[in-house]
Amino acid sequence: MSNNRLKKIFQKKSKNLLSIYITAGYPKIDAMPKLAGVLARGGIDFIEAGMPYSDPLADGPTIQHSSSVALQNGIHLDLYFQQIKQIKEETDLPLVFMGYFNQILKTGIQNFLEKSTDAGIDALIIPDLTPEIYLAKYQSVFEAYNLPLVFLISPTTPLERIQLIDKISKAFIYVVSSSATTGKKGQFGLREKAYFQRIAGLDLKNPTMIGFGIDSAEKYQMACKYANGAIIGSAFIKSLHGEDYLKNAETFIEKVKKV
């Protein structure tokens, strides 16, 4: 656990953390390591590395599209882990796996966790593995590996459940900004602010990162007021168009980080 780079980041820095989501294999099959280089130079704090899935239930149109393009490009799990290794050799950025439970189940949970550890993954986001099922069926196998699971909370998550999630979390808590799939547009209004404030006031033992629907410097700044940082996914993926996608990625990060 001591060598977990993600934990170190949160120990070193408690405000304004920025995490960026990448869909592996998008827009080009070999894009992820290149994008990771751009993100490292751009000064982000950790990467959420998405393994594309054929049926991503929690994702909106942008990430659905990037996932299906990436799968058509030929991304597969072994190649994903090769690219993760490559990123780990080239940068110090912590890497968080994001994928769906079926991908892990089919690979074999132990096999998957071994591959993740070996490649240099620091934590896992599996949006469709609930705390209840995790505790009842899979906790012991996951705990044999030093790979913290990141659970999500949403505006409709009741207090006791937030406390349960805080108790079993070991890296950070992913605070979903609104009741929506990823990439929904719109400003944070009073309702979101009140929700962020409520979570901030709970004095949770884990750091929090706000994500879903963060598409501008303003929203990033605002999320940072109430949490340790923010995660940007769809808006970043959208910026990756054309042959100049690396340049566009760089510009995107500059804009978001500009205060």
Binding site: A58, P127, L129, T156, T157, V176
Partner: peptide, 9 residues
Amino acid sequence: AFIPELLQK
């Protein structure tokens, strides 16, 4: 019920 947290409620 392997659901995202958003469906939990």
